[in-house]
Simulated scan of single mutants.
Amino acid sequence: MARILNVGIAQLGPISRNESRQDVVVRLVALMEDAARMGCDLVVYPEAALTAFFPHWWIDDEDELDSWFERAMPNPAVQPLFDAARRLKVGFHLGYAELAFEDGRKRRFNTAILVGKDGEIIGKYRKIHLPGYTDRRPGDPFQNLEKRYFEVGNLGFPVWHAFGGRVGMMICNDRRWPESYRVMGLQGAELILLGYNTPVHNPAMPETDDLGNFHNQLVMQSGAYQNGTWVVGVARAGVEEGVDQIGQSCVIAPSGEVVVQCTTLGDELQVARCDLDLCNSYKTSIFNFAKHRRPEHYGLIVERTGAGDVLGR
């Protein structure tokens, strides 16, 4: 019997700087309710979905910076989303800014969680490939301060048994790096979930502005195909606090084909019927890693780890 998973991509339009978490959660619940009516098992929300994307501006005050982060998950502002998941029997993926107290100090991460149909957290991922910079750039139309506000994720790229398959997560810029997909592919990932907030304009490389949507889908399609996995990418889209962000949230099959895509730059739900067994033909033929992949002949040192092969000079 085919393993069918109905996945809803819950794209968000802009979130204003003054919009409360409670108001945002109302939007998230509305999308989840629509997804439930359409038979979804899982809803995927964007990166940092609870607030405006604050790394786009400079923040000096420590308390103000901390106010954009979640100290616990769930918390009172977000609890209605967990309650809705339990009531509707729909799981979800949610990105948010996480404030953690670990190793005797305060730490900040760009985080995503996977939540089951029972409203319980299945797994957590912290973004590894942080873009941007740490210094202030007053000449730019907006900032990209993820390297200043977040630490590099310390949880690796795990894969969880969930929703009848093997599910992994990444966040935004992670999707541009083939290692992100490959580490999960080596663990048999069949569904990779990711949210992104990607500006149309790149001040560091303005000559590529017209290629933003192309590059967005290029990396997700290649990652899906080369690892025989479904990839679900969900955007925060539209003009948010003066920053124009791409949309085109989509679901990509293990063949690399886009099977469904959002067509607006606002709150929008699209649904894909994902047959997880479609992964098998790619994983057992073209991309049968055990049979065809030969990292020991790449001219690099191969370190064997529990999460797969790590290559280095």
Score class of each variant (00 low, 15 high):
residue 163 F to P: 06
residue 136 R to E: 09
residue 118 D to C: 00
residue 181 Y to P: 00
residue 171 I to G: 03
residue 137 R to Y: 13
residue 195 G to A: 09
residue 146 E to D: 15
residue 152 V to W: 10
residue 156 G to R: 06
residue 159 V to W: 00
residue 199 P to G: 09
residue 196 Y to K: 01
residue 153 G to Y: 03
residue 162 A to N: 01
residue 164 G to S: 06
residue 140 D to E: 14
residue 142 F to W: 02
residue 183 V to H: 02
residue 137 R to N: 15
residue 166 R to N: 11
residue 166 R to I: 09
residue 154 N to C: 15
residue 165 G to D: 03
residue 172 C to H: 05
residue 134 T to C: 04
residue 138 P to T: 12
residue 195 G to F: 08
residue 197 N to F: 14
residue 169 M to H: 02
residue 160 W to S: 04
residue 207 E to F: 02
residue 141 P to W: 00
residue 111 T to P: 02
residue 132 G to A: 13
residue 167 V to M: 02
residue 113 I to Q: 12
residue 170 M to Q: 08
residue 115 V to N: 03
residue 127 K to Q: 14
residue 119 G to S: 03
residue 208 T to M: 11
residue 147 K to G: 07
residue 164 G to K: 08
residue 208 T to W: 05
residue 119 G to E: 08
residue 143 Q to T: 01
residue 158 P to C: 11
residue 194 L to K: 00
residue 152 V to Q: 11
residue 124 K to C: 15
residue 172 C to Q: 05
residue 140 D to P: 01
residue 153 G to T: 02
residue 170 M to L: 15
residue 128 I to Q: 09
residue 169 M to C: 09
residue 116 G to R: 01
residue 139 G to N: 12
residue 113 I to E: 14
residue 147 K to C: 08
residue 154 N to L: 10
residue 140 D to F: 10
residue 181 Y to I: 10
residue 197 N to D: 15
residue 179 E to I: 10
residue 120 E to Q: 12
residue 133 Y to G: 03
residue 178 P to A: 08
residue 161 H to F: 05
residue 151 E to C: 05
residue 117 K to M: 14
residue 144 N to D: 12
residue 146 E to G: 04
residue 166 R to Y: 10
residue 160 W to T: 05
residue 208 T to Y: 11
residue 128 I to S: 00
residue 148 R to F: 09
residue 127 K to A: 10
residue 145 L to M: 11
residue 204 A to Y: 13
residue 110 N to A: 15
residue 173 N to D: 14
residue 177 W to L: 12
residue 173 N to H: 14
residue 205 M to H: 14
residue 193 L to Q: 01
residue 161 H to E: 15
residue 135 D to V: 15
residue 203 P to R: 02
residue 135 D to M: 11
residue 207 E to M: 11
residue 136 R to Y: 13
residue 163 F to Q: 04
residue 126 R to V: 12
residue 182 R to F: 09
residue 178 P to F: 10
residue 163 F to W: 05
residue 161 H to T: 10
residue 191 L to Q: 09
residue 137 R to K: 15
residue 116 G to I: 08
residue 149 Y to V: 07
residue 151 E to W: 00
residue 146 E to Y: 03
residue 174 D to R: 02
residue 161 H to G: 04
residue 184 M to Q: 12
residue 198 T to H: 09
residue 125 Y to L: 14
residue 156 G to T: 06
residue 110 N to S: 14
residue 116 G to Y: 04
residue 162 A to Y: 00
residue 165 G to Q: 01
residue 111 T to F: 03
residue 126 R to I: 11
residue 196 Y to V: 07
residue 163 F to E: 07
residue 130 L to N: 07
residue 125 Y to A: 13
residue 202 N to R: 06
residue 158 P to N: 13
residue 197 N to Y: 14
residue 169 M to K: 02
residue 115 V to T: 06
residue 157 F to V: 07
residue 124 K to H: 13
residue 159 V to E: 04
residue 175 R to H: 13
residue 111 T to Q: 06
residue 185 G to N: 04
residue 142 F to R: 05
residue 157 F to Q: 11
residue 149 Y to S: 08
residue 147 K to A: 09
residue 177 W to T: 05
residue 127 K to P: 01
residue 147 K to P: 06
residue 115 V to P: 01
residue 146 E to A: 10
residue 194 L to R: 00
residue 154 N to R: 12
residue 182 R to I: 10
residue 139 G to E: 15
residue 125 Y to C: 05
residue 115 V to M: 04
residue 119 G to Q: 07
residue 114 L to W: 07
residue 194 L to W: 00
residue 204 A to G: 07
residue 132 G to H: 08
residue 159 V to Q: 00
residue 177 W to S: 05
